[in-house]
Design a protein around this nucleic acid. Structure first.
Lengths: 341, 341
DNA sequence: TTGAAAGCGCTAACAT
DNA sequence: ATGTTAGCGCTTTCAA
């Protein structure tokens, strides 16, 4: 009795049935007598039986795992995506394989190659890869995109344009007319969407004969360090408010503004994007566009599982939710009326 | 020929050898003639052969993946652990399976059971499970603990006592004599270690005839919400400084102190633990004991792989580093001399 | 409603 | 140095 591993044979013996019946009973087959099924389940539980995934995968030809490729696990937005994804994957009786690309295209390519070898379903969050590469991948594996859209490939995206519209509306209502935009990486699909939303929002405002100038502060790496540079630029440009690509950038920007003695919100209003958990805890608490990261991760899983349901009894496949998730501006302390000047 | 999946049989036929020879040649066995091995490799490449991981895992009984069980992916400390772990695992040619337990014992048990089924090597970060359960698990799978120690089970831990010693020394040097300790969950091994370190540090100080009182503020859930309660307690107890179990708690505490109008560091000094990335970006920047989370995650992988090297040619197994990693106090703006009173 | 038996693709004895 | 063969634990026909 050195081996502690319980197999289907042990359960069969314990329940006094054949292994085929155990397999059927645990898979929830209707062709098993209720009493038998019950006995099997009880035996399995008593023995602490866990089906061997490798064996199951081998015979069904379909893996039990779902991959997630994200740019940076240390970015709270993506940790939240990962958390939501992971929870949903586990609830479906599958396992989540998470891979971090360090915000690097080459690393991403490498990771994608490795992952494709042992997973046939994956979720790519904000991939940097070219459209063509993504399309090629989609042809071989089932993939779902997060924060990126591509014809023919299922995706979950945030309503970026609407988020920017809300943010700009808020700033305009506070009287700001000279607003800086600190953008994300030039290759970012989300950034492109947000910039487009910005244009639309501004045009609408101008159509009402109202004045507003958007100052493009440039493209920054989406970490706090980028925010530092953005802060100096914002001060130099004389804007009274800054719209920031994401909260990570905003964090660095806020810190630098403090160092430079520029009070937030008295002298400068700041609006972030994402609403990462720490945003509300800052001093001043950050006004930001809340993106339901966990929900997006979960929604991507639903989308992935909707077409090709997984094996196994534990599998529950929820209906896929909306693909464009709504976002909502959280007004907090980092924004205020434009300073009288 | 509808199926596009290449198996070892296809390669064998193409190379004109048996499947056993293909297996051996591809595994780099020395008992294969160089010419044959070459022919096999060429055939495999030509056909685009990728060994089926499920089949390999089934027969070897050893998987290609390493599991990581953590309390909360949204806690930046653990995202960092996960990032370090994941990078190292991938570098070794394996895949990382990450599972989140939501800081819940029952959920942890469930996750452990599921994970143990498809992984035979795992890393448990700050597990809440009882010693006996952990020992039982260690008997069946290869496990490495992070932030927990148990006789006979390999572990990577932070030098908690030394961290507390540094923190207390810093506070005492600033003249604080009434210091609060806001602890983590009662079941936390790290918290126990930190409390023990606290006692030692205080005793040493008293042995020099110096005065100091440690006020136990209680045990808190390690999220920002717990910090709010701790803040009120700290104020009520009239301490001039608070030592906090971790940065997440400190975040909530800082926010609440601000709301209550207690200035940090003028009226109250605060020291955190972990040095999560956001700690330095706060206003005031948080003085905290830096724990190298990524390095701990990587070290745990090294420890795990050191004894039973993984399958496959791509595997590289680094030497395990030290098991107790040093920590270092980062003095920032949240601590100052005791207020004159 | 249940059982017997045939593999899934691979590795590891055991032969040769 | 290479081939034959026996499973790994499971799902799924096919019979009974």
């Amino acid at each position: 009795m050195a081996e502690g591993v319980v197999t289907i044979h042990d359960v069969a013996r314990e329940a006094g049935v054949s292994i085929a019946t155990v397999s059927r009973a645990l898979a929830g087959s209707t062709t098993v007598a209720a009493a038998t099924a019950d006995r099997v389940r009880r035996a399995a539980a008593a023995l602490g039986y866990e089906p061997n995934r490798a064996a199951r995968a081998l015979v069904t030809g379909r893996g039990q795992s779902v991959g997630l490729v994200i740019p940076d696990l240390e970015n709270p937005f993506y940790s939240s995506v990962a958390k939501g994804m992971q929870n949903r994957v586990r609830a479906a009786g599958l396992t989540a394989i998470i891979a971090d690309t360090d915000e690097d295209v080459d690393r991403e390519r490498e990771v994608l190659g490795q992952l494709a070898a042992d997973v046939d379903r994956m979720i790519l969050a904000s991939p940097r890869a070219a459209d063509a590469d993504l399309l090629a991948l989609a042809a071989r594996s089932r993939i779902v995109l997060i924060n990126r859209s591509l014809p023919g490939v299922p995706a979950v995206t945030a309503d970026n344009a609407d988020g920017i519209r809300q943010a700009v509306g808020h700033l305009l209502a506070l009287g700001h007319t000279r607003i800086g935009y600190a953008g994300g990486p030039a290759t970012s699909w989300s950034d492109a969407e947000r910039r487009a939303g910005l244009t639309v929002a501004v045009d609408a405002w101008r159509a009402q004969d109202r004045d507003v100038t958007i100052v493009d502060l440039g493209a920054f790496r989406p970490g706090p360090a980028g925010g530092v540079a953005a802060a100096d630029l914002a001060i130099a440009e004389g804007v009274t408010a800054v719209l920031v690509f994401n909260d990570q950038l905003a964090l660095g920007l806020l810190g630098r503004l403090g160092e430079r003695g520029v009070g937030v919100p008295e002298a400068m209003s700041v609006v972030g994007f994402d609403d990462v958990p720490v945003a509300r805890l800052l001093a001043p608490a950050l006004t930001t566009v809340a993106v339901p990261a966990q929900r997006m991760g979960a929604a991507a899983v639903d989308l992935l599982l909707a077409e090709v349901p997984p094996e196994g009894a534990a599998a529950r496949v929820p209906e896929p939710g909306p693909r464009v998730v709504p976002v909502e501006l959280q007004v907090r302390r980092s924004t205020a009326q434009v300073p009288r000047g």
